[in-house]
């Protein structure tokens, strides 16, 4: 396998301004603050985190819909971090996005045919006849009736609109598709249809996905590797199997144990960690480990002083975590998780 996308220390800060006449920058929202990862061709990287963790901003930076504040994005061997509009143009053919809201992301005044053909138009591919044939082919691929290319988005249901969005993303055979919460607005039964479709397309067209979602079950289902984010930083990355079976970061553990289990027997048997409080504001995030105010393993003088680095798990190729007191085993309940190893033992 080859690396299709390499992201190094990506940062995106938004200024917070105030002022009477001249807007003065008084603070920064560090929406993405040092994210590094690689995506291999043909695999799916899942990105999970709660609202405000910076996952969508990160995706928009990678797709260069936003200008990164710092760091490096290397796509298909080329540094695209600061490419201008015209230089990005040929690259956009290889990198498409699918958005959350199938209602808002399609132009309501355009016919489905025009929407799907849009990338072909933008890149000047094919004659009108070719395009129409391609659009019909695409509609068929995503499971819509090809004869419906003359209809408007409002004539379709939510799931069908998401299919239209996917058809548009597929139009010029991209290498990478970034899916930003593609199924969170859909009903369960429709969500399954879309997830299956995405998997089929990946197999048929050798697609690479970055799949962003807040639903851990969904991410587990589609991903090969998973990155957990918290307040603009990755706290744990690893293969799906390792991360879900043996999470190391207490936040990953809490997330996993917070997901309701659709089985009363398993649900009653499971050990749950319920975090206290809310995700803090990304303006002035907590010092050192950003999770420390909510962490059941918090150690004063360590977690709020030293920022933990992403550390590889011994004996694993790509499972790493950023925590001073990683979980020793899984599952754990709240009492077990509080009984962390002594500070002396962990400080070398």
């Amino acid at each position: 396998m080859s690396e299709l996308l390499v992201v190094e220390d990506l940062q995106k800060y938004f200024p917070v301004t105030r002022g009477l006449v001249f807007q003065k920058e008084i603070a920064q929202v560090k929406a993405v603050d040092g994210v590094s990862f690689t995506v291999e061709a043909g695999e799916t990287l899942g990105v999970v985190g709660e609202s405000g963790c910076g996952k969508s901003t990160m995706a928009r930076c990678v797709a260069r819909l936003l200008e990164p504040t710092g760091g490096k994005i290397i796509f298909d061997g080329r540094d695209i971090t600061h490419l201008g509009r015209t230089q990005m143009r040929p690259i956009r053919r290889d990198m498409m996005m699918v958005f959350q809201d199938p209602y808002a992301s399609l132009n309501a005044r355009k016919r489905v045919g025009e929407i799907v053909a849009e990338p072909l138009d933008v890149h000047g591919i094919g004659t009108d006849k070719d395009r129409k044939r391609r659009v019909q082919e695409l509609l068929e691929i995503v499971g819509l009736n090809p004869e419906h290319y003359n209809r408007f988005p409002h004539e379709f249901s939510g799931g069908q609109r998401q299919r239209i969005g996917i058809a548009r993303a597929l139009a010029i055979n991209p290498k990478l598709i970034i899916c930003d919460e593609p199924v969170s607005a859909l009903d369960v039964s429709v969500q399954a249809q879309i997830l299956n479709l995405l998997k089929d397309l990946q197999r048929d067209f050798d697609l690479t996905y970055i799949f962003i979602a807040h639903d851990l079950n969904v991410v587990r289902h589609v991903s090969d590797r998973v990155m957990v984010m918290y307040l603009g930083k990755p706290v744990e990355t690893g293969s799906k199997q390792e991360l879900y079976a043996e999470p190391k970061h207490p936040y990953s553990g809490a997330l996993l144990s917070a997901v309701p289990i659709a089985d009363p027997t398993l649900g009653r048997a499971r050990k749950q960690i319920v975090l206290t409080g809310d995700v803090p504001s990304p303006i002035n995030p907590p010092a050192a480990c950003r999770f420390h105010p909510r962490c059941p393993r918090f150690v004063d003088g360590k977690c709020n002083v030293d920022e933990p680095e992403l550390t590889p798990v011994a004996g694993s190729s790509d499972h790493s975590y950023a925590c001073h007191f990683p979980l020793e085993r899984w599952p754990m309940d709240e009492d077990e998780i509080r009984r962390r190893p002594s500070l002396a033992a962990s400080v070398d």
Partner: peptide
Amino acid sequence: GSLPRLEQVATRLEQI
């Protein structure tokens, strides 16, 4: 069947 879940092993969801 259409629910992806943590304890599940099937690779494909049953879709309605």
